[in-house]
Design a protein around this nucleic acid. Sequence first.
DNA 1: ATAAAAACTGTGTACGTACACAGTTTTGCA
DNA 2: TGCAAAACTGTGTACGTACACAGTTTTTAT
Lengths: 359, 359
Amino acid sequence: MQQKRIRIKDIAKLAGVSAGTVDRVVHNRGNVSAKSREAVEKVLKEVNYRPNIHMSSISLKKMYHILFVSPKFSAGEYWDSIYTGILRTLDEFENIRLSFKKITYNQYDVYDCKRIYDKVLKTKCNAVIIGSIFQKETQDFCHQLDEKEIPYVFVDSNVENTSPVACFSSDHYTCGYLMGKIMNAVMHDNRDIGILQAMRIGNESANSTILRKNGFNAYLDECGIERKIHRIPFNATEPEKNNDIFDAFFNENGNVGGIVVLNSRGHIMANYLSSRNIKNIKLIGVDLTIPNIAALKKGSISALIGQNPKSQGFLAMRSLIEYLIFKLPIKVDNIMPLDIVTKETIDIYSEFKDLVYLK
Amino acid sequence: MQQKRIRIKDIAKLAGVSAGTVDRVVHNRGNVSAKSREAVEKVLKEVNYRPNIHMSSISLKKMYHILFVSPKFSAGEYWDSIYTGILRTLDEFENIRLSFKKITYNQYDVYDCKRIYDKVLKTKCNAVIIGSIFQKETQDFCHQLDEKEIPYVFVDSNVENTSPVACFSSDHYTCGYLMGKIMNAVMHDNRDIGILQAMRIGNESANSTILRKNGFNAYLDECGIERKIHRIPFNATEPEKNNDIFDAFFNENGNVGGIVVLNSRGHIMANYLSSRNIKNIKLIGVDLTIPNIAALKKGSISALIGQNPKSQGFLAMRSLIEYLIFKLPIKVDNIMPLDIVTKETIDIYSEFKDLVYLK
DNA sequence: ATAAAAACTGTGTACGTACACAGTTTTGCA
DNA sequence: TGCAAAACTGTGTACGTACACAGTTTTTAT
């Protein structure tokens, strides 16, 4: 802390060059002879130089443009939490020249997603944070970013065959596995299980929900559970139709005792069950969204799995700034933990999560 | 982010005074006429001035001395985690003029604690972070700090009738309550429960373990559980004697099926049980120390409750810096969540906890 | 060999704050 | 009223970096 920190100037003197040359070496700006570069690098290694982050921030003249592409969201939803985490980091680095914009697409329409991706590619920017729903389209998008040498970071989920600077997501497979475990613990009879998974225009399903389903099935298989599993239809684009759809489903399948909602819309099923006064069906959901938490507190959802979306956004943006501006090495794969939250633990949980990010 | 931030200079111009005067008002340094002060304060309110933290750090000339008083610890122990969290914050603010020292006492000897407290009072410092074991002695200590107007922050637990700048701890009562709940879930028979709680020289017990015991008893009462409860003797100062003590205890009480260790020494009982090849006793402990985690992984501890000590240290030091140096308002009562960790979840848990603090 | 171009190097300035210090005004008191 | 002391105010500098720009050396092409 207190012993005098070594400065650019000191290194310059030690290496027998000027401060400007040291700066060029440190920032890899080129225009340095091999001889000078080696001399400086030798000293750098010896003295373990760490730039004064405050001074760096102050002197930074370049303006960085960062974009966040994600599904559309409203306040309190899953993607909004990721966004909030990003804003938290921006707040921390408020004295850095940085422009940030979010641009969102309809997550139930792959064509809209493509359109937005194209729009991003036409926008001048230095980095992109990507919240991906559609695997294939995101791959294409990333390859074009690669060509333009624009770095990108994933939040929520990773996308195969891409080369992101970093990725921040939970383990969706384990999430599904956990849901199976919890469902099995809370169901005290041998009734059937319903699985709710949204369908999308132009694509089967979101990658994350597919992985969750695999994890869920894996748990049931491993434990040799022989419950009947029903797929519950769900209309994500016209939610007003769901009540009729659910009515039809339950008319045909009276023996369902537990429902697993693989996306963040657990509250929709919870509210449906409440409205029909159905009380003996256990419900497990994903994401601590405001409506989900309300349903959890009311008791219509038994447990929710939290994916730490705020951490995802916070860490993703922080990593990006460290990579882009401070040229620090960053970790590529970052798996967020899954929090199991129940009626009893929701309050203390929420309070702490805010505390950690507070300034 | 990008719109020009208002500077001290701008405020000076708007208020019709010099930058120096604005600075004096902002830092409450006195020597400002009522007229000037009001003019500046009016402008400050209008423009919502927020100083550039980088510039503040750079220009700061005063040296702040901060002390951490806590029980003695070795690597990987509970107090060491708090210490690590503190160091993490110091790393973040490495460019601030700040001296930090830890000073520790024997937590099983109230007289040593007093001696160390007196030593701290004789040391010149600007703030103290206190890890308290003994209620009464800490109260006296705090009152003397109050007199000298030295601010202090608590970690691990709060102390009544003191006026700390902030406190970071988990809820020990709830911790005990949770231990009761878990113990009840993992014990599948009606056997007795043993409670292990350390005795100290000159004082009954640490405040935190008393609270945990209360919480534990409260759970058993609420649920009408009628198990027999035995207090297990434990010698904290001469650990080599414990094997004999435990032998004697189990000779007399053969029907114990579960043991709750209310302090972080769960591994001692775990290792004793392993050494005696006793396998059908469930063990619940507190704190994710290295030996406890090892016992958890081996299966000799069923579950551990984590108190987020690293967060406590990290946030305590961060709050203190914000209060002391950046004059920001800080939250006084901060309750850390309790993590329930089992063999299955320990690895992903540990990994994430590191990630969050990583730079 | 010489000019032009390219590659390299050093110098100087801005960034916004904290604080020292010198300079100015007001107050207190005889 | 005068004069010292106290209270107040403004100016100037350091902090360490990023980067622009001017100046110097080396390379390339004729």
